[in-house]
Every structure is written in C-alpha cells, then in structure tokens.
Simulated scan of single mutants.
Amino acid sequence: MVPGEESMRSNLRRGALEYCVLALLRSGRWYGLDIARVLTRDGVLMSGEGTLYPLLARLRKAGLVETSWEESAAGPPRRYYSLTEDGERALAAFTRAWHPFRDAVDAALEQRADLS
C-alpha cells in the first residue's frame, strides 16, 4: 500500500459512508449487523463494525433514519433501521451531487498529459 493510502480511503469513506447506509435502507428495514456485513464485505467502504453504530446513531439524531425493536427467536430483541422522508430527501440530494462529482473526478484521472 502506498504511504497515505489508508488516510485517503478514510477521507473518501467519511464523505460517502452515511449515504451508502441510506441507500441500503431505501429498500426497507435493515438490522444493524446486516448493514455491517454488506458494508464490510470487501473492506473498502468499512473495515469493521466499529464505525457503523455511531454513524447510525448520528443518522437517527439527524432524523434521517428511525428505529424499531423486534423480538428475535435467536436472542435478545433486535433494532431495525429504516429511512425517513428526510433521509430519502438527503439521499436524493447526495445522488444529484455525486454523479457529476464522480464524473468530474473520473475525467480528471483519465486526463492525458498531451492536451493538444
């Protein structure tokens, strides 16, 4: 790994991770551990579960997600997360901003030195 590469990943994650969580919740209610499993699958978006629960708490306090408790046959009750209307609006705004931003970054990275 190039020196500073993990710091770069951390900065990129910080800006996008909450919207990735909101995007998952767009399909319905999710259990926190299931969210963590999806987001840590390849180690790019999240390297471990430790960052997810504080993020979910911030999203809840901001009114972007809501929670509900459901009994579990496999142990204690589970907390499920779902998207609120404000969360849907925030995700839509991020999506509108993300696409042109991503395209501009891709274009800059693909730019050739010979600008003739």
Score class of each variant (00 low, 15 high):
E70G: 11
W69L: 15
L25H: 12
Y31E: 13
H99Y: 11
G48I: 02
K61E: 08
S82C: 01
E70Q: 14
L24G: 07
P54N: 04
S68K: 15
V44F: 01
L52I: 09
V44G: 00
R60I: 04
T95V: 01
A36F: 00
T84Q: 10
D86G: 12
D106M: 09
P77C: 08
Y19A: 02
A16L: 15
T40K: 06
T84S: 05
P54T: 08
G87W: 04
P3N: 06
Y81I: 08
N11D: 10
I35H: 02
F94Y: 09
D86I: 07
E88F: 13
R29A: 13
V21F: 08
L56M: 10
V38Y: 03
E5F: 07
R112V: 14
V105D: 00
A36S: 15
T40P: 09
D86T: 10
E6F: 05
A92I: 09
Y80W: 13
P100T: 02
L24V: 02
L115V: 10
L52V: 01
T67L: 03
G4P: 12
A92K: 13
L91D: 01
C20F: 07
T84A: 05
Y31P: 07
Y80A: 05
D106V: 03
S10R: 05
M1T: 05
A73F: 11
R102G: 01
W98P: 10
W30L: 15
R9D: 11
L56D: 11
L115R: 15
Y81R: 08
R78L: 08
D42W: 00
H99G: 03
A62T: 03
A113R: 07
R112T: 06
L25R: 13
R89F: 10
E71R: 12
L25T: 11
M8S: 03
E6P: 02
T40A: 03
E70C: 04
L52T: 04
R13W: 09
R60N: 12
A73P: 12
M8A: 15
F94T: 02
A57R: 11
L12S: 10
R41C: 06
T67G: 14
R26V: 03
E5T: 14
E110P: 00
C20A: 09
E70I: 12
R41W: 03
A93K: 11
R96D: 12
R89L: 05
A36M: 09
R29P: 10
S7R: 13
G63R: 00
Y19H: 14
R60A: 13
G48T: 07
Y80L: 15
A16W: 03
H99A: 13
R60Q: 02
A108P: 00
R26Y: 02
L91G: 06
L91I: 06
L64C: 01
W30P: 03
